[in-house]
Design a protein around this nucleic acid. Structure first.
Ligand code: ZN
Ligand code: ZN
Ligand code: ZN
Ligand code: ZN
Lengths: 157, 157
DNA sequence: CTTATAATTGAGAATCTTTCTCAATTGCGC
DNA sequence: GCGCAATTGAGAAAGATTCTCAATTATAAG
């Protein structure tokens, strides 16, 4: 787990994606996975949406982009893309989970409770705290999960 | 949402529960809910375990404590207990969720990835950060979800 | 550009998980 | 104790996820 640099809040929306298809191909091939249109479609739908999407919404949108794609394939694509670190689960307050494009580097999402938009922020406050906890208590912190919920500017009207 | 006091790390295991049955009755009655043996059993199982438990494990243990209890009732009891703030969802790394006794006050769990034990800590680093985010970006932070994963001392042998 | 091969896919079945329905029961205020 | 609304158990129903397997396809090699 990489820690973000010092104090500057670093907000980043994901719409302006940086990977080109060549990068993606390399990422797949590095793990001997095929770069299939179905997998690319799932990722593209998430990128274009800029928000978190439930499996069913994803299935719907993927079928629009690539008719014939099966639901099971959407599940399998998400599993693969998550392993590759390209998408991330978003746990919602009601206990369900959805998916969003994974941020680059160590970031945590701010999820808009109105429009479902996902904005990442980089100031992770947990590096120092984790070390302190380990020193003080002997518990070895291996990982953490953090999400913020709120209202984006557009949704405050 | 209440913020924890200043910098002291405040660890607390939940095994030594502080509510007596009178307190509990009052909590239920304040919302016109019945204090039923099934609901108490679900809570007791969680308290005695001191760890997070999946629905199925809960169902199994509740049936041992109170034979005849139905699975649907376990689901309903968890829903109720969560509304009352007595139990809390724990999101696991694989995307599933389980339940644990809710901590008192504003705390976040450290979940042991070996033995499933849940230890709460009180130094929430997010109050200040949330305000800063709101000031700097205009996004109103309403809530957050934080969990740490690690290895407890016993499990490091 | 073929060809061989292993990975992937679609469709539906199978399996879980969660919610509903409804008659019977039960906690609780009086 | 009585009355009644809240709760429960059991099973059905609905939803979510995983499996199976034959057909397809991306890829590397030639
Ligand atoms: Zn919004
Ligand atoms: Zn972090
Ligand atoms: Zn442990
Ligand atoms: Zn907090």
């Amino acid at each position: 787990m990489r820690w973000a640099g010092a104090g500057v809040i670093n907000l980043k929306t994901k719409s302006g994606g940086t990977q080109n298809s060549g990068d993606l191909k390399a990422i797949f091939h590095a793990k001997r996975l095929k770069c299939t249109p179905q997998r690319l479609a799932v990722l593209k739908v998430l990128k274009e949406s800029g928000a978190y999407l439930s499996i069913n919404m994803l299935d719907k949108k993927v079928k629009e982009m690539l008719p014939g794609t099966g639901l099971a394939t959407v599940y399998r694509a998400l599993e693969t893309l998550e392993e590759l670190g390209l998408v991330a689960k978003v746990h919602l307050e009601d206990g369900c989970h959805s998916y969003a494009v994974a941020p680059e580097g160590h970031m945590h999402p701010i999820v808009c409770t109105e429009c479902n938009k996902v904005i990442d922020f980089a100031e992770c406050p947990l590096g120092e705290l984790s070390e302190k906890l380990t020193q003080d208590t002997g518990i070895v912190i291996q990982n953490h999960f953090l999400q913020l919920f709120g209202k984006c500017r557009e949704c405050q009207a």
